[in-house]
Design a protein around this nucleic acid. Structure first.
Lengths: 235, 235
DNA sequence: CGACAAAAAATTGTTGACAGTTTACCAAAA
DNA sequence: TTTTGGTAAACTGTCAACAATTTTTTGTCG
């Protein structure tokens, strides 16, 4: 129809046409709102208000929330509604630990199957991060770091493992356990990257597992320390 | 209320009642139908027919299917409906491998934190399975085997890891990669159980990881062999 | 007889309305 | 002032109807 192009804002028209179901669009919109803080943890999602705001009826809203509940991002309490899920201290610890384990498994798998060409590709990324860490360019370091991690996820040759890893990372991201990096932290982090690359280059699965797990565990405690420092600083 | 305390088994009855919306009931019903073969892989789920059969309207059906789609059990094709998801050969391999990795992480974690009392509890289970394997009582062996695995999941001290493990196991179960056991297979399988117990009893995480991974990997190939044999036998 | 187009049927997508439950509010009594 | 009881508003749970799309059937022409 002609007016399809009117009411799409922020979405590419291709995506809009691919998943024409409103529920799907709504789901991604709610996800975005949670990530960007328009919904706070434990807040109730008012179906009527959201329906009015997004100009749809409650049906698609409820379908989207059901899906997000299954994904663990939303909690449902019968007769009271959908609530943005907040991880307890214990749950956050479990998710972080699980993420470390699964990342370790990924690097282990990479060590068992990596080619020389792939080793070279990882080395390029680590070298580039080294240079950026030296100059302290956090904003440029971050995307390369992301690429390094997703490159490993691809190389592990197990799409499901990678998917689980990304899901856990997203959950932590939503809960505002975000990586906050300063100069020397970048350097330490990249030294761990190098340890991973050397382990997989040596085709040593044990060592790769250990290095991978250590990287996430250390990263988690670095993030936690930074966020505690921030909290004390701003109070 | 007075009768709250009466019929609580495992979890509180208040939770039981609180999670009962029609959509939730329908979700479990569809799940059951898939597991028990009333829906075959790739079959379309007819919303009207199912609504009539379950005596509800299409709203709850769609909410339930959205949730199952998020869980990966159902596939959505816009304007064509919900389809029972079938794992491809590659996907099934990935899921099996991921399950092995995560079980290995669980046993590794158990080795790092297990108490003497818990070691004793595991030994009791393995001994009991040994006795049942000798007599070849498959139907009695199976529940003890299940208890052994869930006991390990509990002991690993990470609810999220355990949840992921169970999700993967369920997915494979639904896809009919089921454990089919005969006498000597039981014996071999339980020898692997014993290897896991000895590794965690020695507080050796490395060894526990190896033993745990091997158990699932071997179990998968045993199941696969059995199912191939069955298929050839029945054709 | 087969290919193709048009009509009909079946099915999904979406909406608004109504019933049942929870929450908020307010007045009266202790 | 606090508590209690009851009423009204807000909200969720469910449904049936309508719109849009896909699939099946039917009819026509080569």
């Amino acid at each position: 129809m002609a007016n399809e192009t009117e009411n799409m804002q922020g979405f590419s028209p291709i995506d809009f046409l691919r998943t024409r179901s409103l529920a799907n669009v709504v789901q991604h919109e709610i996800e975005r709102m949670i990530v960007e803080g328009e919904f706070t943890p434990n807040e109730r999602i008012n179906e009527n208000a959201l329906a009015q705001q997004l100009k749809v009826s409650r049906g698609p809203i409820r379908e989207a929330c059901s899906a997000l509940a299954a994904l663990g991002l939303i909690q449902v309490i019968p007769n009271r509604g959908f609530f943005v899920r907040e991880l307890s201290e214990d749950e956050a610890r479990d998710v972080s630990e699980a993420r470390a384990y699964i990342f370790a498994c990924m690097t282990m798998s990479v060590a068992e199957r990596i080619t020389d060409a792939e080793v070279a590709r990882l080395r390029v990324l680590v070298d580039r991060m080294d240079a950026l860490a030296k100059t302290g360019e956090v904003s440029q370091y971050y995307p390369v770091n992301l690429e390094f991690h997703s490159e490993l996820a691809r190389m592990c040759g197990n799409a499901r493992l990678a998917q689980i890893y990304l899901g856990l990372a997203r959950e932590l991201h939503i809960q505002r356990y975000r990586a906050l990096a300063s100069g020397d932290v970048l350097d330490i982090s990249n030294r761990e990257h190098r340890a991973i690359v050397e382990a997989v280059a040596a085709r040593d699965p044990q060592q790769a597992f250990t290095a991978g797990r250590a990287h996430i565990v250390n990263g988690t405690s670095r993030t936690r320390r930074a966020s505690v420092a921030l909290r004390h600083g701003s109070d």
